[in-house]
Computed example of a mutant assay.
Amino acid sequence: MRIAIVGPTYPYKGGGAQHTTELAHRLTAAGHDVVIESWKAQYPSFLYPGQQTIDVPEGEPYPKTRRRLDWRRPDGWVAAGRRLRSADLVVLAVLSPVQVPPYLGILLGTARKVRVVALCHNVLPHERKPWDEPLMKALLNRVDGVLTHSGQQAELARTLTRKPVTTVALPPHLPARSPARGEGIHHRLLFFGIVRPYKGLDLLLRALPEGVSLTVAGEFWGGIEQTRQLIAELGIADRVELRPGYVAADEVPALFARADALVLPYRNATASQNVWLGHEHGVPVIATRVGALADNVRDGVDGLLVEPGDAEALRKAIERFYEDPERLRAGVRAVDPEPFWSDYTGALLRA
């Protein structure tokens, strides 16, 4: 089958780019002829405040990649659609409603001569704008099928379209190498990844017990001054290390090696790689019962689960963790990606 995936890949960074790249590799290994239609300019900087591209790949780049799409060039969107008319399947990787106008331009160019699936990492953003829902309705009602990564996201998609919606778990796209694993108890926790309000860093700061330190590593999408102010108000500046900015792949193992646990205090979530990332580095995960986080943490075996939005419950979970941290560390196992990818590619092709 000739398949075109439209989405970010190297030199773009992050989970969306890693997923697009790994999906192309997996479909190619299954015998399909795959091309990635990617971006030379994906978002205006005022809509994506973080670092967009990187110099060193986060995985093996996919060779058959065309980087021609530009958010400033609608003519290029339509031209991409014309190029894709020879494909048997076009997969639109949807990470944000900001992508909808280019994707509608691509659909205009295909002239409905090819089947199209919208692969929705998020059906709607965690922090929504008034135009998000109308944009997503416009896109989802013009494709042939929708793929989501959780039942909750599937239900949301069905409120926006009557097109078929398929659900399958997001598969792991993790570093191929075996990372270094930490030894001993450091009395230090890790919050890792882009910092946004829905991820609940403020709850974790309020929950941090005496004698426990915290490293916060990742890009702040606004709110860093409020975070510093909260740290000062709580009197924990001597125990909180802020490392704002993109964390390069070769710096990640050292971060996890000095942490006793990864904490994911999200208020809400869809799917996330971070539980698997923590386990890949031999680190237990303390997470809230939201989205797919709860599906990937075995409560009391390789991590602990708490209800979202409750700083006191989170504090008690951290204290419970430190009663016997080695027990949970012993329960951590790296995930086997193969069954997840087999299910995922099969579901995508059926969608």
Results as ranks from 00 to 15, higher is better:
1 M>S: 13
1 M>G: 14
3 I>L: 10
6 V>E: 06
11 P>K: 01
15 G>K: 09
20 T>K: 03
20 T>R: 06
21 T>P: 06
21 T>D: 05
23 L>I: 05
23 L>W: 05
25 H>Q: 07
27 L>G: 04
45 S>E: 11
51 Q>N: 04
54 I>D: 12
61 P>R: 12
63 P>I: 07
65 T>G: 11
65 T>L: 09
69 L>P: 07
78 V>I: 15
83 R>Q: 12
86 S>A: 15
91 V>S: 01
92 L>A: 09
95 L>G: 15
96 S>Y: 03
96 S>G: 01
98 V>A: 14
98 V>Q: 15
104 L>V: 10
108 L>G: 02
111 A>D: 13
112 R>G: 11
115 R>C: 03
116 V>P: 05
117 V>F: 03
123 V>W: 03
126 H>A: 12
135 L>S: 13
140 L>A: 06
144 D>S: 12
144 D>P: 07
148 T>D: 11
150 S>N: 13
153 Q>P: 01
159 T>W: 03
166 T>S: 14
171 P>N: 06
177 R>E: 15
178 S>E: 15
182 G>M: 10
183 E>I: 03
189 L>K: 10
201 L>S: 06
202 D>S: 13
209 P>M: 12
211 G>S: 07
214 L>D: 04
221 W>K: 01
225 E>F: 00
227 T>S: 10
228 R>Q: 15
228 R>A: 02
229 Q>F: 00
231 I>C: 03
239 R>D: 01
250 D>L: 03
266 Y>P: 01
268 N>G: 04
270 T>I: 14
271 A>Q: 15
271 A>C: 07
277 L>D: 08
278 G>I: 09
282 G>L: 08
284 P>G: 05
285 V>F: 08
287 A>I: 09
287 A>N: 09
289 R>N: 05
291 G>Y: 12
294 A>W: 00
295 D>H: 11
296 N>D: 14
297 V>S: 10
300 G>W: 09
303 G>M: 12
303 G>C: 11
305 L>R: 08
313 A>F: 02
314 L>V: 02
321 F>K: 00
326 E>V: 12
332 V>M: 07
339 P>N: 00
339 P>W: 02
341 W>Y: 07
343 D>H: 09
346 G>D: 12
347 A>T: 02
347 A>R: 10
349 L>V: 15
350 R>Y: 00
